[in-house]
């Protein structure tokens, strides 16, 4: 049994914290950890919570998990906040809204910064989720950045996507319409004690009717997370969606697609690294790159040339 494997046997938060730290920082050790966790993938239900800023996602996650945790299930939460593009630093504040979860031994929270990723998640989110899954978490909740742009990344990782909205965010609804609006599995109108809640529910229901998923009518729920209202209903719908996925084979399909996506990502990443290190080593190519930069050589020709050389080098074709 190798070292990484033994870590997975131990099941301690301290070790899990250390494993995740390696993965988050993409250290040399992280490959071994990911390889091991890939083999150990468990059966966690992965739920993505997304929505515009100010919709109260963190508070909702807090109250949702507080209720869920009572049943004793093992919960992992991954909360993502943006990295500053200028300083590369980040202020990760979701935990302040999840204080009620601290001290619960069956809840593990990991905050991540986007570190330059644009799709609403951190680059290592899928890896982090995989390790949590392999570590025996039964439910993993991913809270996306929620800065207003369309956050598609979560769709690739999550089994169930919950879109959180608030009354009176008409404009953001418009932007969302174009994208994730069509793909979420459960819609929530949070802060439903505000004026306009019923209108928002009505609008959403109309939209859902136009975009019905096959065999799954996306429910539209009202919640007031701050008062703990609507949590039981939301939990029921999340559970109902899980059962739907399991019974309709989507559960397995999603996992298979995810495996392929992962393979693709890894291949592209490896290729990028390979190309990078190859061109950095070749002085002749550096000169040609300079020519492209100055407009003396066209990029198409050089690109084809580099790829050809690279394949030759590896003895292919």
């Amino acid at each position: 049994m190798n070292e990484a494997s033994s870590y997975f046997e131990k099941k301690s938060d301290v070790i899990l914290g250390k494993l995740l730290k390696e993965v988050e920082n993409q250290t040399a050790n992280s490959i071994e950890i990911l390889r091991e966790s890939s083999a150990r993938k468990g059966t966690a239900h992965i739920v993505g919570i997304t929505g515009p800023p100010g919709s109260g996602k963190s508070t909702l996650v807090n109250k949702l998990c507080k209720t869920l945790a009572k049943s004793g299930i093992e919960i992992g939460i991954v909360a993502v906040d943006p990295t500053s593009p200028f300083t590369k630093g980040a202020l990760l504040g979701d935990r302040t809204r999840m204080q009620e979860l601290s001290g619960l031994s069956n809840v593990f929270i990991k905050s991540l910064a986007t570190r330059g990723n644009l799709g609403g998640l951190a680059p290592t989110t899928a890896d982090i989720v995989q390790v949590l899954d392999a570590y025996g978490k039964e439910l993993i909740i991913i809270e996306t950045v929620g800065v207003g742009q369309i956050e598609f990344d979560v769709l690739e990782i999550a089994d169930t996507v919950v879109l959180v909205n608030v009354p009176g965010l008409g404009d953001s609804l418009q932007t969302l319409k174009a994208g994730i609006m069509e793909i979420a599995d459960i819609y929530v109108v949070n802060q439903a004690d505000r004026p306009g809640a019923d209108e928002s529910v009505r609008d959403l229901k109309m939209m859902v009717r136009e975009k019905l998923q096959e065999n799954w009518e996306q429910p539209v729920l009202k919640t007031i997370a701050t008062n703990n209202e609507g949590m039981i209903e939301l939990i029921d719908q999340i559970q109902r969606h899980k059962e739907f996925l399991l019974h309709s084979n989507r559960w397995d399909e999603k996992r298979k697609t995810r495996n392929l996506t992962r393979l693709n990502h890894l291949m592209i990443q490896s290729l990028n690294n390979e190309v990078d290190s190859y061109i950095r080593r070749k002085q002749g190519i550096q000169i040609k790159i300079q020519q492209v930069k100055e407009g003396k050589l066209d990029p198409y020709t050089l690109s084809d040339h580099i790829v050809e050389q690279l394949i030759k080098k590896h003895g292919g074709m």
């Binding site: 202020l91 504040g93 302040t96 701050t226």
Partner: peptide, 9 residues
């Protein structure tokens, strides 16, 4: 009244 999450950071 329930607990309210301090909206900070």
């Amino acid at each position: 009244f329930g607990l309210w999450q301090f909206p900070l950071a």
